[in-house]
Design a protein around this nucleic acid. Structure first.
Lengths: 159, 159
DNA sequence: CAATAAAACTTGTATGTTGCAAATTTAATT
DNA sequence: AATTAAATTTGCAACATACAAGTTTTATTG
């Protein structure tokens, strides 16, 4: 009954659905991808396009257009880096911060509901497990390399 | 540090990446969506288009075309149900079964690697937790309603 | 039993997403 | 000053997605 692949297949599918038409906030209608971008910019320290795209594992050209949308929506701002004007630093506008906070609230509310079906002990266990899982995935060579939580390798890559 | 939303955000992102260009098997190059479809047909009991689309939470028109692709690739077969010829029952061809098995092997191999970074105890805990999480998500009214694990309601729906 | 409604799919079409190749702008090297 | 490289944008061309409308087959109903 504890088939690893099956458990992950179901979970992955659920998360896929979760994102479908993720997050509507006061007139703004965001996709899951856009929500991830806002999240990343919000918590990042004014990431550049490259950095953000890498972190999210998105092709830079696709990312460029996604940012264009968010800028057009008035949620994100791009400003050339003082040190190197090729680089665009990303930040949230006031509206962007509001939307990000709102999505955060929605997500937490959803998660609270899901967790309400668990006992306090199970909640602890599940959270701890996701932490473990994220750590393990981060170490895997086969997946998710571009995704880093907080600290990871920052040395040159390639052999 | 144990911020629920953050943990889920990272995990979701990782799973998103996981699926990016999921699974290449002997010339066949499948998307994550296609892999989910094969998985579902493989373990399902000759589901109909409707059933499979519902289970996967995909719009039926999109699903129809996805199946067309898989049929064109020679991985899936459609046959009219004897009892009702409007219904198309889905099944895997020999090639489809081979591909599904192969993906299963790849996924398990990947998961084995990820789990190798955990202690045996942690592995148990994580698996159990995903089980709990899947169960909890299934109960949530706000998400994932169409996704069912094994048994769920099979009574008439609607009020 | 014929007409009407409904169910299960498919197709038309319009819009959005994705990513490779090529262009653009700015910086670093020689 | 010329060449190379880095960060980002744009030109495509292929795919994905979903609403509306159409097709085929089955139920219902008077």
């Amino acid at each position: 009954m504890t088939n690893k692949r099956e458990l992950f297949q179901i979970m992955t599918r659920r998360f896929g659905l979760l994102g479908k038409n993720c997050c509507s906030v006061g007139g703004y209608d965001l996709s899951a991808a856009q929500s991830h971008i806002l999240y990343e910019i919000d918590r990042g320290r004014s990431p550049s396009m490259q950095q953000a795209a890498d972190t999210l594992g998105t092709d830079i050209t696709t990312f460029s257009r996604q940012i264009q949308s968010l800028v057009r929506m008035g949620l994100v701002e791009k400003s050339p880096a003082p040190s190197d004007r090729r680089i665009s630093l990303l930040s949230l506008t006031t509206a962007g911060k509001f939307v990000a906070a709102s999505i955060d609230k929605q997500m937490n509310s959803y998660l609270d509901e899901v967790f309400s079906y668990l006992t306090p002990f199970e909640r602890e266990t599940v959270l701890r497990s996701i932490e473990l899982l994220n750590g393990a995935m981060a170490q895997s060579s086969r997946c998710c390399a571009p995704v880093r939580d907080e600290a990871e390798d920052h040395s040159g890559n390639e052999s």
